[in-house]
Design a protein around this nucleic acid. Structure first.
Length: 367
DNA sequence: TCTGGGGTCCTAGGACCC
DNA sequence: TCTGGGGTCCTAGGACCC
């Protein structure tokens, strides 16, 4: 592992955390291979058929102007933008493009790269002029992949991540302890990375509505509402504090899952068994690719648009697909008989490698 | 208007043990 | 008859992210 710890003084300059985020990544990849789509409203989602149950993965800026955003049902999006180009999700293409971008980042001199997702990564670097480093990086990405990205610069991972928002599109923005409250203090807590609608509402009941409020909150005072870990974590988030280390330790998956939303709800018992067998085949293929045994299973069932139940079970560690399938079918027996099923999901939890560290996980843990 | 799919981690409560 | 206190494991559900 190589790592760069921001806030320490090094020989080649200060350590910095950069957060690199590709601009409208999926739509941009689609436009690259179909140049005639440039300037048009492009919506990517599901199998590209607005008549099906599916949602928007990404919308181009032209489509966003009509009020279309990710997570919106494809049907609604199509109604809002009648002449939009609607495309199916092509994961392989995005994965390939993502790989090219990450290679460019890793090739930057002195860079430590921590991948967060298809379209974003932290880059640790020691530099006297992080803005110049960021601009060079943007030029390199554009030259090699024809994709634009925005860069946030920070003295912690959280500040770098939040800074990127102010750099979009294709810009650079720096956020440190020095200007954190000036920039973020008066903004609502929901703008923080890791605070969503539920938590911001619960904070509001405590009289905490802005980032400055949260920054001033007593960490222990949040424990009764949010628990021993999350309470202090939110207070830290309000200050923009947290980890300063960009860590390129390879990520180790905890599990793999597959979900299917049915175009028509399933009602026959036989259909459900068949669906679970198919999910299990996909999940087992992903697990087998890692060569690690399965130690737990979770079956997720959506019986109605808003009613989801999960059935979980630890299983004796096994790498035998037939055994895993048998346990999965056991979980089916817990389901409510005769109730129409709209979605089924199966997740397999894998044994963690004995001798390895946990590896990096792209979550709040440790940040 | 009606909500995907792939992930991670945290919390609460019950079971069980000493 | 009534019922401590600490610990661990498991299951279910919640919240968030991309």
């Amino acid at each position: 592992m190589r790592s760069v710890r921001a806030g320490q003084t090094g020989l080649v300059g200060e350590p910095w955390v950069l957060h690199v985020d590709l601009d409208q990544f999926i739509a941009a990849v689609e436009v690259l291979r179909r140049p005639e789509l440039a300037g048009r409203a492009v919506i990517v989602g599901g199998r590209g058929d607005p008549a099906e149950r599916a949602v928007v993965s990404t919308a181009s800026y032209e489509a966003r102007a009509f009020g279309v955003g990710s997570g919106m049902p494809l049907r609604i999006a199509a109604r809002k933008v009648p002449d939009a180009v609607i495309l199916p999700v092509d994961q392989e293409a995005y994965l390939a493009a993502s790989g090219e971008v990450m290679s460019v980042l890793r090739a930057r001199p002195g860079a430590t790269v921590q991948v967060l997702g298809w379209d974003e990564a932290f880059v640790g670097v020691e530099s006297e002029d992080p803005e110049s480093f960021a601009r060079d990086l943007q030029h390199a990405v554009l030259e090699k992949t024809r994709l634009h990205c925005s860069v946030g610069i920070g003295d912690t991972l959280v500040r770098a991540k939040v800074a990127t928002t102010f750099g979009k599109p294709a810009g650079v923005f720096r956020l440190t302890e020095a200007n954190w409250l000036e920039v973020m203090g008066s903004r609502p807590t929901i703008e923080l990375w890791g605070v969503g609608t539920k938590v911001s509402a619960r904070l509001a009941t405590l009289g905490i509505t802005t980032v400055a409020d949260l920054a001033a909150a007593d960490p222990d005072g949040l424990v009764p509402e949010f628990g021993p870990k999350m309470g202090p974590w939110y207070a830290q988030l309000g200050r923009g504090d947290g980890a300063r280390t960009v860590d390129d330790t390879p990520w180790v998956a905890r599990g793999h899952s597959r979900e299917t939303t049915f175009q028509q709800d399933l009602t026959e018992p036989g259909q459900i068994d068949d669906a679970v067998r198919e999910l299990a085949a996909h999940v087992l293929a992903d697990v087998a690719a890692e060569g690690r045994p399965v130690v737990g299973l979770t079956l997720k069932v959506r019986y109605a648009p808003f009613f989801t139940k999960t059935y979980a079970r630890k299983i004796p560690r096994t790498a035998d697909p037939a055994e895993v399938l048998a346990h999965a079918l056991d979980l089916v027996a817990k389901m409510e008989p005769g109730r129409p099923v709209r979605l089924l999901g199966l997740r397999a939890e894998m044994a963690m490698p004995e001798d390895s560290r946990q590896g990096h996980t792209p979550t709040r843990s440790g940040w």
